[in-house]
Nucleic acid binder design. Structure first.
Lengths: 225, 225, 225, 225
DNA sequence: TATTAACCGAGACGGTACGTCGGGTCTTGTA
DNA sequence: TACAAGACCCGACGTACCGTCTCGGTTAATA
């Protein structure tokens, strides 16, 4: 999945499956896909150089070789733009290769997530948009669909694999299964983010091992109840 | 603990309780302690109404009935001011009453921490200053000493109590003990923050119970190794 | 006289009544004569509502139910469009009916010219295009041929009638006669415009009478020399 | 009279005689008189280089070495600023030295006024602000008090001198005297402006002579009625 | 008690970025 | 080929805050 077919990226339109516009016969000059790409690239570059606080949309437009109006036609503001720009990184970087055991899978995803958080563009942007989202429902939804839900899928996939391997029991109640997945997700993502950004300590192999042990033991002992 | 003896809170000096100054014979009109209080109150009020993004120092000064100059004499900028303003809330809210068992203690602290995060002034401010701190070493230190370290003390205290009760084994290696405390802290604080602000789901009794079970089981099984 | 045969009105071609083109075998869809009319009407309407300063070509196009492209195909810019739009008014409004005496003729033309200047579309547009023309030779020529020269013809016609009636002497030197006509034209048009737009006082019968007396006495006494 | 004591120049304040502010105890940092001067100078320079149409307030501020906000604190927009900037030229340039006769006085003022209109900053600005004033009452008042009334005083002064010399009769009815002064003013100013800016022909000695003759003859013959 | 130095309010200052608007050009699909 | 639609680049707009600075005036410790 690339940024091209992500739902709700552009400000208007809402990307129907067939690409048509609501008004009926799509008319006028179509939007430049090249501009979209250039803007998102420029946003990431500016994030690296300047950080969230000093990032200005005028500067992004200039870097992208694009007029400010072109940028505002597609995104409502800094928050929306940055969410889309970093979401693309989550697309590229987060996978869950089968490493053969639950422990290895968790350690793997922890380290890959930590590596993503180490990148200056994510480090500076992620907390900032989350902070803004506390006051902006639409932004919260955008973050959820563009970033959070994709991470959560990894948890579901990892659990399924562990169950297939017999490392975790199958859960009969689907509601409680969903609750458990949410819990595990918040624990993993929360611990890694907190370690990396709040405590500002490295998420290295040692830490990942300790954390994973704690979690796997907890899961094995707690979930069956 | 008040803002008076917090290290490096005010920009210069630091208004000792007796009003004296370190340099010896400095004269002139002393700073108004009333102004300090009014500014921090106004900051919290503005955070609630406007959120981090729309908060402006000119507006804070106006609310506090104070000139902008007075504000800048005491704080270097928005970040520093907000850290001090929300740090005071952490002072008031974070305690660890002995509830009789490790499980009860953890559940208690999780719920109290979640309640603090529910307040609009903390919710909007905490992530924002953390985001800024990714590019500002001094701010990171200020956050650490004003907020993080105080939370971490609760972990140390809770572990000590649990060890006294025999719920957790005493750790012989002090270095590994410190690592474990850090890990537990990141897991608790991270999970709660992530649940409350990123997943934007309520941290209620049920969630606290599930999380605490997972953690206690994990601790009991994993730490002895 | 309509906009169709006015020299250089439209940007290219000039939309003959029969739709043919001078170059011979040019093919393709002919320009809509309806569009021309709608654009000029919309321009005048927009001038009345918004004045020169707030007039925008996008708005004019929208009012005319026409694409901006269509507008720019015909006129080079705001100035040219407005000159053409108001020139049409001068076509309709400026005549010189023979009122029987030089005094009556002058009073008549003064009042008719003042009435034209009272119309909001002329009032706001005329000075504006003149202002622009101080920096734009082509615009100056366009104004001259579309507006000024037509007014000046009235002076020549009026003088001829007065000479025929014996109210003014025939001038032998054609060069000095032209100079005099220019002078009289600047005095009449200038005084009326200045009274109406700069002094912003009404050009009523009383003023017209006073002005005409001054002018006729001056002409009778001064020109023979 | 200089721009310093001109009424209503600044946006707020209204220039009390003692320079005090309405709110009672004038407080805060006082406005820089230097900035005022620099802005008006820069405005005239920009008018010369760019003309009214291309003049931008951001550019003026930059030339003046001043922030845009400083400019907007003092003037509401382009129109007001330019009126004040050119009004200063009228102050400096328009005098009425006694040349010994009515004819010489009129010729003198015509030529001096024409010279002022030849300057690129006045040429491009004057008609433009008049055009805008047709839709803006406040601007019209500002033009009247800053420019028009000062020119009109020359007419009154010239008539008085001519009456003292016995070239013109004293007028008994003050109301009709005022009407006559207005008429003469519109004729002189209007004719010169029209010749210079609309007809775009030079106002040289020859034209001034012809015009003055026409006017003086007219005055001598028409006014006594 | 008088001095005096630092404080305080008000608000102007030079900046940077904002988000919008209009100008004039271009690229679509359709007539 | 013209046309409606609308995206494009560009430049200016007027506003909001930033953090600094200058004012006149106040206030407590010191001399």
């Amino acid at each position: 999945m690339t940024s091209a077919d992500r739902p709700d990226g552009p400000r208007t339109g809402g990307s129907r499956p067939d690409g048509s516009r609501p008004g009926g016969g799509r008319t006028g000059r179509p939007r430049s896909a090249e501009a979209d790409r250039a803007i998102l690239d420029a946003t990431r570059a500016a994030l690296v150089e300047l950080g969230w606080g000093k990032l200005s949309l005028g500067d992004v437009a200039a870097r992208a070789g694009v007029a400010k109006t072109t940028l505002y036609r597609r995104w409502a503001g800094k928050n929306e733009l940055v969410v889309d720009a970093v979401a693309a990184l989550f697309d590229e970087q987060l996978h869950l290769p089968d490493l053969g055991s639950l422990t290895a899978d968790i350690e793997g995803v922890v380290l890959r997530f930590a590596a993503l958080l180490e990148r200056p563009e994510t480090k500076t942007a992620l907390m900032a948009v989350v902070a803004e989202s506390t006051r902006d429902e639409a932004l919260r939804d955008r973050i959820r669909s563009a970033i959070v839900d994709r991470q959560k899928r990894l948890v579901l996939l990892g659990r399924e694999r562990a169950q297939a391997r017999g490392e975790l029991p199958r859960e009969s109640d689907p509601e409680s299964a969903a609750r458990n997945a949410d819990l595990i997700f918040d624990v993993i993502a929360g611990a890694v983010v907190h370690r990396a950004l709040v405590s500002a300590e490295p998420v290295d192999g040692e830490w990942a091992r300790g954390f994973t042990t704690l979690l796997v033991v907890g899961l094995a002992g707690a979930l069956p109840d």
